[in-house]
Design a protein around this nucleic acid. Structure first.
Lengths: 332, 332
DNA sequence: TTGTATGCGTTATCAG
DNA sequence: CTGATAACGCATACAA
């Protein structure tokens, strides 16, 4: 058991309040004489004092723990983000509570309710909830919150990629490579991100086949199987998990179609398939979440405004070869 | 703001302790009359009572939050484990605090100290610390703890893979494929897992080149570059991150060597390299951690004993072809 | 069967 | 400049 304020007070023959003020620092500490402040600090040091964060939370009604509510930390995209957010928060003195909703709205609500019970100090969330009301219903009014990846109308504290731009550069790349007809493999259309990506692709490309399902490799496999017989230049997938399933099936072909997708595909350069991906700026997404959140935690008065990041296209060698063969001559 | 015990007491014209006893359930609740118990439960329901977990923690000196202290959640191995552990804990009513040590002993110590300040209820840790003393120094004596993946002498509450068996089946597979000479690419030898794997490989195979460094792809790349000119049948890597770096460099060769490694390589079946990996039973590792921990949390009297899991070998098509060409005839 | 009183360790208010 | 003292919400020993 660590020493308490009261231990230090006894040791220094001062009162608990004095000790608290000294150790709290800030304005309160300045109203204390150099002498006693020094004595208190010395005693705290000597006794190895560490504040009881639970007691502090009970009193202040907030903790230095931030919740990260996402669908699944084993998704590499969230794994990277989670790692970066945790590092950054830790540097700023906060801890992270990890909450996997598993894309299950009910689990999301359960967690949302938990937050106030635990006096969680802030929330970074990739929401299932589609409306501001749904999302905030069970949360304390003043809880600092950052919505990540999926815009929710009426919430300005947003960090996300510009999905129109992201899908746009993907279509650009495919067009330049001579892709005309595409099979669209889409994740759940209830999810903003998947929906918007699918919409842009549908507008820009000639979609001759379409399959929708959970954002898992299995959905990609099913799409490929059902699409057999139909001739397409490319499979466009609204995320990398879907693409993995398609790639898995497609590898055997002698003249494989293009794969267009979003986010990172591991070892993409080694795969004998033409692949082009639209990559989000993951480190910037993570860091933006933290700065956006810290601003609210520090009671910065200016209202938060959305942070929208640009994506960039990345393709592998096989894609470049494909483009050599099928692509238009680039009009400079 | 949620209702408190005191609100319910006032509403039902009983006392705080009565309400507390009813809502606590268990033995205390049985000593209360059906009538008042019902009244209390009804009021709690009506007022939407949710216990303030911070206050409870302060009083009981423990919380229902479990810490997971690992090196890096963006490592897919830990991502999977983290996801499974979080799901399982959540089902059992616990939350997860995620701590990335980044393989930095100092960050590990920082986190260890934090746990008691937060009254964390239990710990699952992949430790840097090599001794029982180092690990437990800053922890409450009675904290339920599970050591994952890296045995620490004197701590029985362990969940890990049998590294001798894991490395053994990898060597078996390579031998059967006709591999004689290997380049050993090893992670930090301070880490139990890497060290043991390297030892077994060194005993079983003819190691003609050796490179050690952080368990990152970059180390694998360096190893490959420094190994150029030396003729080896295989690269044996003590984990998948190292292997990724080697694979990255090696892909271009017309007659590539075998890659032997541990844990999952994404899209391994599509890669044009002979790869064999020794796979840990990740879901079982995760679930074992939770059961091992819950047993301690429920004050089960029997002392915990280590849970050691077996691995299995998995290879891709290219490896099978390699084996056809170079392998011994299997002596039945 | 139920109520009263105390304390967990802090922060914050109000007197001096 | 400093010290009592009152919460925060809950669990629990002790009375009744």
């Amino acid at each position: 058991m660590s020493a308490t304020l009261s231990d230090i007070a006894r040791e220094t023959r001062t009162s608990i309040s004095t000790v608290s003020r000294v150790l709290a620092g800030g304005t309160a500490a300045r109203r204390i004489s150099r002498a006693t402040a020094e004595r208190v600090r010395a005693a705290a040091q000597r006794l190895g004092y560490r504040p009881n964060l639970v007691a502090r939370s009970l009193r202040t009604r907030k903790s230095d723990t931030i919740a990260l509510l996402i669908s699944d930390i084993s998704n590499p995209f969230f794994g990277q983000i989670g790692n970066l957010i945790e590092r950054s928060l830790h540097r700023h003195g906060y801890s992270l509570m990890l909450c996997n909703s598993g894309e299950d709205p009910q689990r999301e609500v359960e967690y949302l309710q938990l937050l106030s019970q635990k006096a969680i100090g802030g929330l970074i969330v990739v929401p299932m909830a589609r409306t501001r009301k749904q999302l905030l219903e069970f949360l304390p009014q003043d809880l600092p919150i950052v919505v990540l990846d999926r815009p929710v109308p009426g919430i300005n504290s947003l960090v996300a990629s510009d999905q129109d731009q992201a899908a746009g550069i993907l279509c650009d790349a495919m067009e330049r490579a001579g892709v005309k007809t595409v099979a669209l493999v889409a994740g759940p259309q209830e999810v903003q991100t998947h929906r918007r990506r699918a919409e842009v692709i549908s507008q820009r490309m000639e979609v001759v086949f379409r399959h929708e399902g959970p954002a898992q490799p299995e959905t990609g496999r099913q799409a490929y199987i059902q699409c057999m017989g139909i001739d397409v230049d490319a499979f466009a997938c609204t995320n990398n998990f879907l693409a993995l399933g398609v790639i898995d099936c497609i590898a055997a072909l002698e003249s494989p179609p293009v794969i267009g997708c979003f986010d990172e595909i591991p070892l993409v350069d080694l795969l004998p398939l033409p692949i082009v991906a639209s990559l989000q700026d993951v480190p910037m997404l993570a860091e933006s979440c933290v700065t956006q959140l810290l601003r609210q935690l520090n009671n910065d008065q200016e209202k938060p405004s959305p942070i929208i990041l640009q994506s960039r296209a990345k393709s592998n060698k096989a894609f470049h070869e494909y483009r050599e063969q099928h692509g238009k001559i680039a009009a400079s």
